[in-house]
Design a protein around this nucleic acid. Structure first.
Lengths: 221, 221
DNA sequence: AGTTCGAAAATTATCTATAATTCGAATCCA
DNA sequence: TGGATTCGAATTATAGATAATTTTCGAACT
C-alpha cells in the first residue's frame, strides 16, 4: 500500500472521495472536520487540506465559515459531465492513436471482456474506467488526463447513485467497435464512436427514501 | 473589495496566482510557506490551503515532504492547453448560442475594441478574457466554465512569459468573425472559427537571463 | 394557543503557536 | 577523494485560542 508514501491529507481525501463516489455519504450532507479528524485519529488541519482537494474535484463544496457539504447533482450535471468527457476523450484519443500498440489494444479488449462479465456495478465501473484509461493514456497530455480522471470520478458517482444494487450484465458493443477501428488505423471512426459512447445516458427508476419511485440517470460508457 | 468576504487562504491563493500568472515568480522556484506566511502576516496553515488551491489549478506542483514549486511549462503544455480550450470552448459556445442576447453581443464587441486598443499585454489579456467569458457564460454549465477559467489562467501565464514587455496592437479579426456569425444565428460557423482561434499559437524571440535568445510560444486568442 | 422575534449557549470553522519528522547539505574522518 | 555522520532548514502534524454561525429556549405579541 502507498499509504505510507502519501501525506495524511491525501490519504483522507482518497478515502472520503471513495465514500462520496460510492454513495456511502449522501449528497448534501455535511462533512464535519472534527468528526473526520477523530475518525482518522489526526487533528483537523490535514482534514482541512483534504477538503480543499475534494472541492477541487467537484465532490464537495465549501462555504466560508459555514462548513463543507458533499456536492449534490442533478440531470443537468450528468449531461454536462457526459459532454465534457465526450469532447476531451475524443481529443485525447486523437493524440493517443498514433502511439497505441497491439499490446495495449489487447489489454483494452481484456478490460472489455471483464466488464461484460461483471455482475455488479462496482466491478463494471472499474473495468470500464480501465478500458478508457488504457486507450487514452498514450496521448501524453498530463493535464488533459487528470481532468478526464476527475470527470470519470463524477461519472462513477452518478452511476452508483442510480444503480445502487441491481446490475444486469450487458455486452459493450461500442468498446468492441472502437477497438476494431483502432486496429484498422481508422482513428476518426474510433473517435466518433467514442464521442457518442460516453454521451450515452442510461435511465432507470429507483425507489427514494420516501418510498416513491423517480427516474435516475447516469453515464453508462 | 471582497477581501473581507473571502477566507485568508483564498486571498493568499488569489494573490499568489496573480504573481505566478504575471511572471513575478519564476517557474520552478520554490514557494516557502514560512516566507509567504510572514509576508501575509498569518501562520502557515492558511498558506498550505492556498497551496492546495494553486495545485488544483495547475499553477503549482507539490512533492510530499519536499515542498511546493511554481509549475514550469514547455511548448507541449502550451499546445495541450490550446487544444483543451478549443474543445471545451466550442462545446460551451454551442450551448450558449441559443441564450445569447443582442446586449451580450454588443458587450463582447466592446471588449474586442478594447483589446484592439490595448497598448500592453496585460490589458489585452483582460479584454480578451472578457470577450470569451461573455459569449460562453450563458451556456449555464458551471463545471465547464470553471475548467475553462483555469485554462485561461494558464494561457495568460504563457502569454506574459513570452510578451513580458513589448506588445504591438493588432485588430482581432477572429473575434469579429465570431460575433458576425453569432448575430446571423450561424452557430456552427462561429464554433468552427472559435476552435481555430484559440489554437493560434504565437511565436516570438525573447532574451533569456543568460543573454541568449530563444523562441517563446503563447496562445494568442 | 400558536407564532414570531430575540438573546444566550453550543457547535463549528478558522487561525495562531508549538512540537516532531524528514530531507538535503555541509563537514569531518578514514 | 569518498563515504558516513551530524547539523540545519523546511515541511508536516498537534494542540489550543478566537471568531462566527446555527440552534435552542424563552418571552412577548398576535
Amino acid at each position: 500500500m502507498a499509504s505510507t508514501e502519501d501525506t495524511i491529507a491525501v490519504r483522507i481525501s482518497k478515502e472520503l472521495a471513495d465514500r462520496i463516489i460510492s454513495g456511502a455519504i449522501e449528497p448534501g450532507s455535511r462533512l464535519r472536520q472534527d468528526h473526520v479528524a477523530e475518525e482518522f485519529n489526526t487533528s483537523h488541519v490535514p482534514v482541512r487540506e483534504a477538503f480543499r482537494r475534494l472541492e477541487a474535484q467537484g465532490l464537495a463544496i465549501s462555504e466560508p465559515r459555514r462548513g463543507v457539504r458533499v456536492a449534490s447533482f442533478d440531470l443537468g450535471e450528468v449531461r454536462e459531465v457526459a459532454e465534457m468527457r465526450a469532447a476531451l476523450e475524443v481529443l485525447a484519443l486523437r493524440h493517443a492513436a498514433p502511439h497505441l500498440t497491439a499490446s495495449i489494444l489487447d489489454q483494452a479488449e481484456e478490460a472489455t471482456k471483464a466488464g461484460d462479465k461483471s455482475r455488479d456495478v462496482r466491478s463494471w465501473e472499474e473495468a470500464n474506467r480501465t478500458f478508457h484509461r488504457l486507450i487514452l493514456a498514450p496521448c501524453n497530455m498530463p493535464r488533459l488526463l487528470s481532468t478526464i480522471d476527475d470527470l470519470h470520478a463524477a461519472s462513477a458517482r452518478f452511476l452508483f447513485a442510480a444503480w445502487r444494487s441491481e446490475w444486469e450484465t450487458r455486452t459493450d458493443q461500442d468498446h468492441r467497435a472502437i477497438l476494431s477501428a483502432l486496429r484498422q488505423g481508422n482513428t476518426e471512426s474510433a473517435a466518433a464512436t467514442l464521442g457518442r459512447h460516453v454521451q450515452w445516458i442510461g435511465q432507470k427508476p429507483v425507489k427514494t427514501a420516501s418510498g416513491k419511485t423517480r427516474d435516475a440517470f447516469a453515464i453508462v460508457g
